[in-house]
Amino acid sequence: MDVLLRLKRFDPERDADPHWEEYTVQADPSDRVLDLLHQVKWYQDGTLTFRRSCAHGVCGSDAMLINGRNRLACEYLVKDAGTEISVEPIRGSQVIKDLLVDLDGFWEKYRSVMPYLVNDEVPADGKERRQSPEERERFDDTSKCILCGACTTACPSFWSNPDFVGPAAIVNAHRFIFDSRDQAGEERLQIMADADGVWRCRTIFNCVEACPRGINITRAILEVTAEVEKAQGA
């Protein structure tokens, strides 16, 4: 069947402003939106620019605003997207070219929350640290994050205040705050308690809707907020 693909194009080397362009492509219902973008790039217009790699929802490269919602282009099928599909870059970051945005700020915020285990003590027997299945389960949800940016760039609080650390970074802080092995809890909670930390969340739930991994992000943010409050009360 024919699908009408509306793509928001912008190449600052050639264009004064972003604009929509339309392409007709042949598609099967089981095709991914990413397949359609490839059809355009490979056989119609090689200048179309976007990021992608694994093409099955694990690498996190191809978050885009598709039919008005943040999704991974490789996880959204034509049978669900319909025969008229619009694709724009994710919002809140500078567009570099077509569907590809500047992610420097996104990575900077990720790195700012100490997204790594801090614990250099090794058990006396030289073996693994013990952790119960229940303790492991405590941060399972947030450990699924693939850093695609769909949540942060769907967040109205982030749009209105680009300094907000954003849901993705908080998710990755949560991953360590609730890991029984970590020893940097206080320091990380300090970062979260910053003016541009968890308090900027307005529980709008856009992040939950946008997450391709199904992470309950708002709950994670509220859990981190509760920890911050506990630490401040103590």
Partner: peptide, 15 residues
């Protein structure tokens, strides 16, 4: 594991 990898655990807390 020491570097932080979240392995699934046995009831005894081992990998």
């Amino acid at each position: 594991e020491h570097l932080g990898l979240p392995f699934n655990r046995t009831p005894e807390g081992l990998i």
